[in-house]
Write a protein that binds this DNA or RNA. Sequence first.
RNA 1: GGGGGUGUAGCUCAGUUGGUUAGAGCGCCAGCCUGUCACGUUGGAGGCCGCGGGUUCGAGUCCCGUCACCCUCGCCA
Length: 554
Amino acid sequence: MVVGPESGEANLAAAKKVRPEWVLQVTGRISPRPEGTVNAKLPTGGIELACEQLVVFSEAETPVFQPGAVELPGEEVRLAHRWLDLRRQAMQDNLMLRHRMVKLMRDHFDEAGFIEVETPMLGRSTPEGARDFLVPSRLDHGSFFALPQSPQLYKQLLMMAGFDRYVQVAKCFRDEDLRADRQPEFTQLDVEMSFVEADDVMGVIDSLVQKTAREVLGLEIPLPLPRLSWDEAMERFGHDAPDQRFGLEITDCTDIAADSEFRVFRGAVEAGGRVRGIRVAEAASRFSRKDLDTLTQMAVDAGAKGLVWLKVEEGSSLAGPVAKNLTGGIDARLIERLGGTAGDLLLLVADSFEVSCKALHTLRKHLGATLELYDPKTLHCSWVVDFPMFAHDAETGGWAAMHHPFTAPRPQDIPLLESDPAACRAVAYDLVINGSEAGGGTIRIHDSGVQQKVFELIGLSPEVAREQFGFLLDALASGAPPHGGIALGIDRWVMLFARLDNIRDVIAFPKTQRASDLLTGAPGEVDAKQLEELGIRVVTPPAAVAPGGTAPSP
RNA sequence: GGGGGUGUAGCUCAGUUGGUUAGAGCGCCAGCCUGUCACGUUGGAGGCCGCGGGUUCGAGUCCCGUCACCCUCGCCA
């Protein structure tokens, strides 16, 4: 935009006053820039607008930070002045991407005959799962609504009602501690279908993944997406959402370890544990003693008693603090099993299966990132299927549903409900993108006998089940079609497709790690009158916070 | 609840073994320049060093506590 003497004195005077972030209307003629004034670096660098009339719609106070600045302000400042932060091109791009992806999802399901149905935000608290956000009832003191953790029960009821293809962009709420990829309120693409099996649900998502990757990233993803069982995921990667952008797969060496004299190995095997390891190719010389101590500490932090590290040397021999214990050909067998060649680094963990999974997963993730074993631009999508039906509940000592209590066991595993619940596998499937759980679903139980048995196993008495889920049980007994579905974490999808590592950057108005909103000040105190109407008395009133942000000493 | 990191000018940061008046870049204000766009140039203003306490002759710096933000474990069917 050019304002010169030819624009007239008034416009020129007005233009001189203009400051950053002012809102203007400029009327004039667009023409190619004169010779020598073209700027190829700007998208509009070839043209200019000769100002004929300048109108100042709105002046702007000096902003706390400049949205166009090179230096990004700290997140605290960005959140407190979110409207400025959202002016930044990167944030505009992120929200535009989100819009496009959500539209793709809606169109995809609309074309497949799904209808979007809204479900209540004010529902009933149900046991298990995450902590609920509660909303007190004014008309019934002492009673509370719960915000939905997901529309799970409602969407199943819609199946009983005959809407055999349901979808919803649904807000969900879970009052748990936050992470970089977790917000207390988040958005799911919630899906449920009748007369389907797991393949049908995964198929619908497969084509959505392919379509989205193609339209948004220009990536061609072959279908069907690879699937691996939960058991295989834990064996090969030590995690139920493995990052498969790189190798470093886990190899079991328990049988070799059992033959060794090395007490660490023998002890783990005799205690019913496992000895497993990963081979880091050509890494022996890249890791100093200090680096290896760091890896060891990571393994210890993950619950392991230690980490056995070994450097493969010429002639099938091993070097390392415990190498001398691996006599009698154990060293050669380990090298062969792990596929080691001279210069490789071998990392072994001897512990229970669970601990070895956790430790090796932690190491694998760390090494993959620090050794740059993958192109950060790749998008690896896959399914993990056949999750265990039950997990040990640390609190009760009994069984707990790994997903929710309406998850169907695999038909062939139904006898295991009686004989061996631990071995019972569910018709459950998680979508994994770049080592992140991007969605998950199950086929639901539609047989009341099986449902009864599952409730029993997780310690839910018929009375309590009726009390909590009576409406669902009644609905199931009223002619329920076989059904199942899935929920995709939209925030996380957008984050992954935008190649970001922070979910807040794809949410217009996110919350901090302590679930507060720095923009509005939520949550905040309310009037005594409001509390009185709700029949609520605050037992521990919040300490008054001084303007300096300091709480008074107790 | 546990572990780790950060907190100094409006913003991004530097600040030595504790030692005079706490600095830089950007922004802001005033002037000059007036077609190259992160303009240039001259000058200026701007600091509860997150908050509270302690040690010390002396604290941005050391100690204790506390608050906020970030990462993480637990947690998130």
